[in-house]
């Protein structure tokens, strides 16, 4: 747990919303990144991040103070995203290409943008059941055990889903001619 984090959580448990604001400031990038990875749409990810922090605050008493807070907040985020996917049936891949990077060389920038978009589209093509552990593993950098806790799955299932997710991704990317070298 980060420096002062336990104290912030304790204060939030006592209803100190400013303490919770500090927690949000510390975790918003990670939570947003996870939501974006799972949902694939920035507007939905913004809503999900917002909902995750509100829901986490309301359910803060269920957090075990001796566990890692990051794993818990990521689990809340994954659940918010799962419910959002279920509710809105957002299984379609992204249709638009966003501006992703800023660089000095326009040609290189465009190539990198296109490559990022192809990979992002490939991730979006995966079933949510595969996409969620993938995002938690490679964006949030959780280990298998933490992903299992976050998603409420056995560790073996997480390993299997990650393996299948990567196999499918590899297949999709190879079909699109994406290699491992930029």
């Amino acid at each position: 747990m980060g420096e002062g984090e336990l104290e912030l959580i304790q204060r939030a448990l006592h209803g100190d919303v400013d303490a919770w604001g500090e927690i949000v400031r510390r975790y918003k990038d990670a939570v947003f990144g996870i939501a974006l990875g799972i949902l694939g749409n920035p507007a939905d990810a913004e809503d999900a991040a917002h909902d995750a922090f509100i829901r986490a605050y309301e359910g803060l008493h269920t957090f075990h103070l001796d566990k890692r807070f990051s794993t818990w907040i990521f689990a809340v985020t994954a659940n918010v995203c799962k419910n959002k996917l279920r509710r809105e049936r957002l299984f379609a891949p992204l249709k638009h290409i966003s501006r992703l990077t800023k660089g000095s060389d326009p040609a290189q920038q465009l190539a990198q943008q296109e490559r990022t978009q192809i990979i992002k589209d490939a991730i979006d093509q995966l079933k949510p059941a595969y996409r969620m552990p993938l995002v938690l593993r490679y964006y949030a950098e959780l280990d298998y055990k933490e992903i299992a806790e976050a998603l409420g799955l056995p560790e073996g299932t997480v390993k299997t889903r990650l393996h299948r997710a990567k196999s499918q991704l590899k297949h999709i990317l190879e079909q699109k001619g994406v290699t491992g070298h930029a």
Partner: peptide, 8 residues
Amino acid sequence: LTRYADAH
């Protein structure tokens, strides 16, 4: 995933 999140 990192670049995509950073962009938004």
